[in-house]
Design a protein around this nucleic acid. Structure first.
Lengths: 192, 192
DNA sequence: AGCTATTAATAAGG
DNA sequence: CCTTATTAATAGCT
């Protein structure tokens, strides 16, 4: 729609690209908002403009979104599990094969990108820690991935130590219970 | 655009809602693809249809989105580690339902408050998980805080199982090493 | 799922 | 940023 039909191909001029982007973005946002309201669909939109930072838009009442994100993440995980490939390949696959359907809700006021970046960094850090801890737990449970014999021995020592600690704790608890039972018995004897 | 001007408000009739969704979705997707090509913008879109069908679209070349997706996959990985739950069915469903196209859409400037909120929620979630995991590790190492005798017993069983796994893994590694040494010996004998 | 009458988005040009 | 000629999307029907 316009004075002439526009060929859909990359606009070479940067200025023109940005200008068109600005206009069309507005249009798509409007459409997305309408869709959101008309059809009650939850939406989230991720995008990163070549000249800008990554941004995520989430529909306001998109409670279902988190579940979508979760399922999405599960999808990628399953893909990885199934093929024993790593995240990157999985991501490529998603990029290449899936389409992004999207809706967005426009949310007016801009927050600053720096804050967002901070969150992203913190998130990444936490996730790294979590992954590390998970790995420890996983190796404990299933040591078949551990290749280093010395590490195995160390783990074994730890396990034995833990087991000993656990057993003495169990004994301690058992003893305490015995004491309680005897006290109870004693009281009963007094009552009779 | 249509025979009459449509008021933007939730369509009460389910059928009508689904029908409109289907049509408008197509339109938005087209627009997004155009925007992608015209302006070189990378996008990913998540949405749930009125019938609750989740779909993911990701634009090609959306490098900026990879980190987000990566973290999503990590999240699910962690979740699964922790809870040992599987949602393969769900994943398959998502996969089958996603159509193959590419759309992208872009947004330059505005970040929004919802984005931050999403991150905050995710952060809190991660922190909770980290705390939980740390607690598990701590209890293993030092069971003196564990009060429940049954839990102690469960932990003991787990430890024993892990220990067995560890020992068989150790044996396996040792055996492999022996084999390697013998092969090496054999080669040396041949050489001399 | 198709089909037009209409409305809405927007290309080009101030 | 505006304006407006044109094209594109789609509302109401079938």
């Amino acid at each position: 729609m316009g004075r002439k039909k526009l060929k859909i191909q990359r606009l070479e001029d940067l200025k023109a690209r940005q200008a068109k982007y600005s206009k069309r973005k507005t249009g798509i946002l409007k459409k997305a908002k309408e869709l959101n309201i008309l059809c009650e669909v939850d939406v989230a939109l991720l995008f990163s403009s070549p000249s800008g930072r990554p941004t995520l838009f989430v529909g306001q009442n998109s409670t279902g979104l988190s579940s979508i994100l979760k399922r999405l993440s599960n999808l990628s995980f399953e893909e990885r599990e199934e093929r024993r490939t790593y995240t990157i390949e999985m991501l490529k696959k998603i990029y290449e094969n899936s389409e992004s359907e999207f809706d967005l809700l426009s949310l007016p006021h801009a927050t600053n990108a720096d804050t967002l970046k901070l969150y992203e960094d913190e998130l990444q850090e936490l996730k790294d820690k979590l992954v590390e801890k998970s790995k420890i737990l996983r190796d404990w449970r299933n040591p078949n991935n551990v290749e280093d014999l010395n590490q195995i021995k160390m783990m074994e020592d730890h396990l034995i130590a833990s087991l000993n600690g656990l057993r003495s704790r169990r004994n301690q608890l058992a003893m305490e219970q015995q004491i309680r039972e005897r006290e109870l018995e004693g009281n009963e004897n007094l009552e009779t």
